[in-house]
Write a protein that binds this DNA or RNA. Structure first.
Length: 190
DNA sequence: CAAGTGATTAGC
DNA sequence: CTAATCACTTGC
């Protein structure tokens, strides 16, 4: 994934994504055919960016993937920095390189992605996706449930989060629910 | 683990 | 109009 900042390339290898299948997917902003000023972007043609603002401070970058009127999208959740690392560090001062873009909000900050890129054509010159240097085998991709959508009932259990096995730049360690703390309910995993 | 932050949304 | 929610991150 590449963005331009003042003519310079800032890029990273996509190492984690999540799929959102509106309108039936309860976790999707387009659930039930919801169509508002914000979600309208997802009803556009595949190959455009869906960028929105959440939690009062973060942007999220998605790729619209289907035909017009079918609101499917893929959230880009983490990048392994490749080009313009200095520029990313400037956007996220004090962070170690491994944490520059290992989360959907973080990568938008690192690449300076904001609402102005909502509906951007990914064949344009502001943000786009290129084929990587090496092919990625299916065997190297892990899948699991999506994050931050507990409200979505049975849809929350769909294994629609994908990441590169063992890659240190994903937002969470492989499959693990984020750091099992001592002191919480003992037991747990079967 | 919990607060923070403000756009977006549903519901009057 | 108002109140609740949220596809997250950071620091205690």
């Amino acid at each position: 994934m590449v963005a331009t900042k003042g003519g310079d390339r800032v890029s990273g290898m996509i190492v984690e994504t999540e799929a959102y299948r509106g309108p039936e997917d309860r976790a999707s902003h387009a659930y039930g055919g919801r169509r508002t000023r914000r979600t309208e972007t997802m009803y556009g043609i595949g190959g455009t960016a869906y960028v929105y603002f959440v939690y009062g401070m973060y942007y999220q970058f998605n790729v619209v993937t289907a035909v017009p009127e079918v609101p499917h999208a893929v959230l880009i959740r983490a990048l392994q920095p490749v080009e313009g690392v200095e520029l990313m560090r400037a956007c996220r001062p004090g962070r170690p390189d491994v944490s520059l873009a290992n989360g959907p909000g973080k990568l938008c900050t690192a690449l300076a992605i904001d609402r102005s890129l909502d509906r951007a054509d990914l064949l344009g010159d502001r943000v786009w996706i290129e084929r990587g240097d090496r092919p990625v085998s299916a065997a190297s991709i892990a899948r699991g449930s999506r994050i931050g959508i507990a409200y979505a009932g049975e849809w929350a259990r769909k294994p629609w989060r994908f990441w590169l096995k063992g890659n240190p730049f994903v937002s969470r360690r492989d499959g693990m629910p984020r750091h099992v703390r001592a002191g919480r309910k003992a037991g747990g995993g079967a």
